[in-house]
Design a protein around this nucleic acid. Structure first.
Length: 595
RNA sequence: GGCCCUAUAGUUCAAUGGAUAGAAUGUCAGAUUCCGGUUCUGAUGAUCUGGGUUCGAAUCCCGGUAGGGUCACCA
């Protein structure tokens, strides 16, 4: 890497010119802004205390040193405190030649080490997946791929919340009013069917509460004592005590939900190495609570409930077991974390969970530490922002929830319509066309959601998300298709470039800037991995596509008369296309050969 | 109210403490003897507010304003 070389040389310069050690921290090597001459820039302001001279003079002395010491630095210029270095063409061409044919350009070989376990998706089984889950799933999947590409040993896991009062509500509604309906009989996805009964429960429950209030009961009491809720709670108890009838219905309805989820997951293109179910793990947390009581990390109140006192950490008391001995969310999560640690001994346990649960994870880590689990420090909460709609938050009561399947359907239709209007490839078979529309619609959706910094709340505008112009997935997919078309034509024309040597070629400015951008891919990938940020990849690949389009617009390729230049440009195009494909792949986005 | 997070062109997003804050979209004006016009070029337009630290602040610190999250024997 040229940056490291420059850094080392600068340290050497500090010794030779000023007799001092330059701390690496204060060295800043950055890309030269396009409006200035040069390729890489060293900011000299921080070095003034080493040189004890003015910025211009320091930069000048350093510039001379670089040129005299490094063959790859051909010239320099100084503007204010910025030392702009020009890197030799043969350096860029050498990079180009060495990397253009690699199929793993920018990626690292897998390292043999303890895994990074990434939990994402984590659905409840009482309702279908919606827009919020989509951000979660896309993020989790993409971050996993980015870490893998960076050489990490990654395990993707899902934690399904398959037990609790919520699923009992759906079950109860189904028993009362379902009339034996199944996904097959209702012609409905299983998750949708179960979700419908959850909604139905809520309606009927509210009616009951309203009636009770009308007959004179206090609202609070009515909410507690409504027969439906009492019955649902009863059902939960039956579930916990292993009642055969309840368990049977529970398995059956959850089975429907999983079939439905599988369809959505498959369409989204996500998958998992292992799926945990809370029904299997919720008891483990109780063992940890026992341990905590013995170690006096936790305490029991008079009513039998168990708590953790976190006031010395600036937080409140946290409930871990209810007075009736049943476990809560935190209890389950403690157990799941321990199980997962035992399963994998991971270097890092990453949880892709919305930022509304920041407090939860702070507490989780604290309690595990108090229990003496040193690996609690390896818990990383990849906390992402909420997805908002132009008219505010999604609210199920107001019917503004954007359903995942519906959204993908709409995007598919738009992709189809847009492509048909252009009418370029009417020779596609129905099957090919279907595949293309799928590719484009998911490309638009995934790119739209992943290009935003995960930490930030994002605005989801359905109309803009299916746009095909500007900073969008289809724009990049189009660029790729165009490159592939170019390459095919280049080959058909009889050009051959794979074994050619381009070290002596003279680069046009647009060619050089494209190569320089390609050079950035490995470092970008590394940064994206460090920051768990698919957005960095998305922004990079957009820049790359744009840079290519400028090159393409400005420079003749197939009609270039010099066969060497023609081959070089085709090779550069092919390399760019491959890098676009690679980067988009990390976002879970496929790119077409034709569109 | 306590704690946490956020605030950048009309809008949606960028910017390891570094040069004149970049894109997209919108609006206006242009480009094709061409290799795919879902492209390219130009114009327009922004750091919430007041202090502080620094050679240098959108970025770090303090106060204010506005918005969001969270503080359940829900998950």
């Amino acid at each position: 890497m040229i940056n490291e070389l420059l850094t080392l040389t600068l340290i050497q310069a500090g010794k030779e010119l000023y007799g001092q050690d330059i701390p690496e921290k204060i060295i800043q090597v950055q890309k030269t802004r396009p409006e200035f001459e040069g390729d890489l820039t060293i900011v000299v302001f921080p070095l003034l205390r080493i040189s004890k001279k003015g910025p211009e003079q320091t930069a000048g002395e350093l510039g001379n040193y670089f040129v005299s010491q490094l063959e790859n630095v051909t010239s320099f210029n100084v503007i204010k405190g910025f030392l702009n270095l020009t890197i030799a063409d043969h350096f860029w061409l050498n990079f180009f030649d060495k990397n253009r044919k690699l199929d793993n350009f920018g990626k690292n070989e897998p390292r043999e080490e303890d895994p990074v376990v990434i939990e994402y998706s984590s659905p409840n089984t009482n309702k279908p997946l919606h827009l919020g889950h989509i951000r979660n799933n896309l993020l989790g999947w993409s971050v996993s791929e980015i870490l893998k590409a960076n050489g990490e040993n990654v395990k993707k896991v899902n934690l399904v919340n398959d037990r609790g009062i919520h699923i009992c509500k759906s079950m109860l509604a189904w028993k009362k009013w379902g009339d034996g309906a199944t996904p097959a009989s209702a012609s409905k996805k299983g998750d949708k069917l179960v979700g419908d009964f959850y909604v139905l429960f809520d309606q009927k429950y509210k009616e009951e509460v309203a009636n009770l209030v009308a007959s004179g009961m206090e609202k609070e009491q009515a909410e507690q004592e409504a027969p439906l809720l009492v019955e649902a709670k009863q059902m939960l108890k039956q579930w916990e005590s292993g009642d055969e009838q309840v368990r049977k219905l529970w398995s059956e309805m959850n089975g429907w939900v999983y079939e439905g989820f599988d369809v959505t997951y498959k369409r989204l293109g996500v998958e998992f190495d292992k799926i945990y179910y809370e029904s299997d793990t919720y008891l483990l947390g109780k063992a940890l609570v026992e341990e905590g009581l013995e170690k006096r990390v936790l305490f029991k109140k008079e009513d039998g409930s168990v708590w953790c006192d976190l006031s010395s950490d600036g937080l409140d008391e946290k409930l871990l077991l209810r007075a009736n001995g049943t476990s809560v969310y935190m209890t389950q999560d403690l157990g799941t974390a321990e199980l997962r640690y035992n399963d994998y001994h991971p270097r890092e346990l990453v949880y892709v969970v919305g930022n509304e649960q920041n407090y939860h994870f702070e507490v989780l880590r604290l309690i595990l530490k108090k229990l003496g689990r040193s690996w609690a420090e390896n818990i990383v909460h990849l906390s992402y922002g909420m997805v908002e709609l132009p008219h505010g938050k999604m609210k199920s009561r107001e019917g503004t929830v954007v359903d995942a399947d519906d959204l993908m359907d709409e995007m598919y239709d738009t992709a189809k319509q847009t492509t048909e209007e252009l009418g370029k490839y009417n020779d596609f078979s129905a099957e090919e066309a279907d595949k293309l529309y799928h590719m484009l619609s998911l490309g638009a959706l995934k790119y739209f959601m992943l290009k935003v910094d995960p930490k930030k709340t994002m605005m989801f505008n359905p109309e803009e998300s299916i746009d095909f112009n500007g900073n969008t997935g289809p724009f990049i997919q189009y660029t790729h298709a165009r490159i592939r078309s170019l390459v095919r034509k280049g080959e058909a024309q009889g050009n051959r470039w794979s074994d050619m040597d381009f070290k002596e070629i003279e680069m046009a400015p647009k060619e050089k800037s494209l190569i320089k951008l390609l050079y950035d891919y490995p470092a970008t990938l590394e940064q994206a991995a460090q920051n768990f940020s698919p957005a960095m990849i998305a922004n990079y690949v957009y820049d790359l596509a744009k840079e290519f389009n400028q090159f393409y617009q400005e420079i003749t390729i197939l009609k270039e008369e010099d066969s060497g230049k023609r081959a070089f440009r085709l090779a550069l195009s092919e390399f760019t296309g491959n890098t676009i494909k690679s980067a988009m792949g990390l976002l879970g986005i496929e790119v077409p050969e034709r569109m």
